[in-house]
Design a protein around this nucleic acid. Structure first.
Lengths: 229, 229
DNA sequence: ACCTGAACACCGTTCAAGT
DNA sequence: ACCTGAACACCGTTCAAGT
């Protein structure tokens, strides 16, 4: 009676683990996006009923916590050199590249501060440049946090749709073009700054935009490190 | 037959408007939080059936776009002085204070770049210090965007629950205390940086933490402004 | 110990029907 | 023009029941 048409069950030979579930969640996120990341779909991807996941994971939020840690697994760090500024710049660029390469990573990571294994490894390596800059413990921690917030914020913005219109088929570029047009057409008497900066505020915001802010942050941290050391 | 027990309907004497709906959404957000911000609850708050809202608003996402603009209505700006750095610092501090005063504002604002009336007014005033710094148009726009990303990122982090555990009753302070204990108990040979900075990474992160990063960013922007001018 | 069936209390959204 | 009733296709989560 059965035997044919059991492709999903066949894939699963052994008992389910948390790791299986987290990796399935990562697949669903990558394939269908954050909106479609549901317990039921993760279960379906595993060839299992949704209720089964609750044996391994407390809630959907807890699964997202685990997924957030998983997303940091792929972040790589360059070699340590004697130039902490260059190291910090490289590490930060790799960080945002790695997260932007994964769909909706910013939405999952936003507001989570976890202590999973990948997060700890990433933190340990990421803190290196701040310590080599010669900052005291508090300043190093605060500076690292500031850079972290900036990076996550950038990933969220860059990976977002900007508005509901975007989901209705419009591309990010089209939205930006429209916004530029709107900014430029405002009455300059009332909006002198917005009209004057319309172009810079709406041009495609890739790595150049990220690096601009990152370099300002690094310069500001260097000011402090130089003054203190 | 009726006449008694119609409190919600009585409140609504005239026809529904988009403004009514947005303000009801703001009330629901403030009262019940982002998770509870549903079309059905907004409708209930207005004494109306959920289907009615779709006459005025395309989708829930479109309503959240409108709500995002509404959240910026309360942001105030100080007097303009001849010190753009001080003005920028004041404006930024007021911005995060204003958003942190509203529940889950970061979650609504995250990733939205809109051109609503409040957003435009806020942008116009917010761009002032960057222009007075003497930066060229592109640099002023990029610098403003960097500060914006940092502020929104901070609000998201500060307003978040950090993990699923937090929603299960634990306070933010308890989570931070636990995390500090965990960081401190890691093997220092494997995690020299995390253990050394455990305290700074997990102490209660209020305005001091925000200002630290903001001041680094402003210093970095000033470096550029001074070099260019 | 682990998974399923079936239900509960919700969602966003649509659309014919009412006024 | 504006709102409702009723439905559709989903959700997260629980829990008795199966193996």
């Amino acid at each position: 009676m059965a035997g044919w048409n059991v492709p999903l069950e066949a894939r699963r030979k052994r008992t389910l683990t948390r790791t299986d579930i987290v990796q399935a969640a990562a697949r669903v996120l990558q394939r269908d996006g954050y909106e479609a990341l549901t317990i039921r779909r993760v279960a379906e991807d595993l060839g299992v009923k949704s209720a089964s996941l609750y044996w391994h994971v407390e809630t959907k939020e807890a699964l997202e916590d685990l997924l957030a840690d998983e997303l940091l697994a792929g972040v790589v760090f360059g070699e340590t050199t004697d130039d902490w500024r260059a190291d910090l710049r490289n590490d930060s660029l790799h960080f945002v590249r790695s997260l932007l390469a994964k769909r909706d990573a910013g939405r999952v990571l936003a507001g989570r501060l976890l202590a999973g294994p990948n997060t700890l490894r990433w933190m340990e390596a990421g803190l290196g440049p701040f310590r080599r800059a010669g900052l005291n413990a508090r300043d190093a921690a605060f500076a690292a946090h500031a850079v972290h917030i900036y990076m996550i914020g950038f990933v969220i913005f860059q990976g977002s749709d900007l508005s509901a219109e975007a989901r209705a088929g419009k591309s990010r570029g089209e939205i930006l073009d429209e916004t530029r047009g709107l900014f430029g057409s405002l009455p300059p008497a009332d909006y002198p700054n917005v009209t004057a900066l319309a172009h810079g505020l709406t041009i495609a915001d890739g790595e150049g935009r990220f690096l601009f802010g990152l370099d300002r942050l690094i310069a500001g941290i260097a000011d402090l490190a130089d003054a203190g050391g």
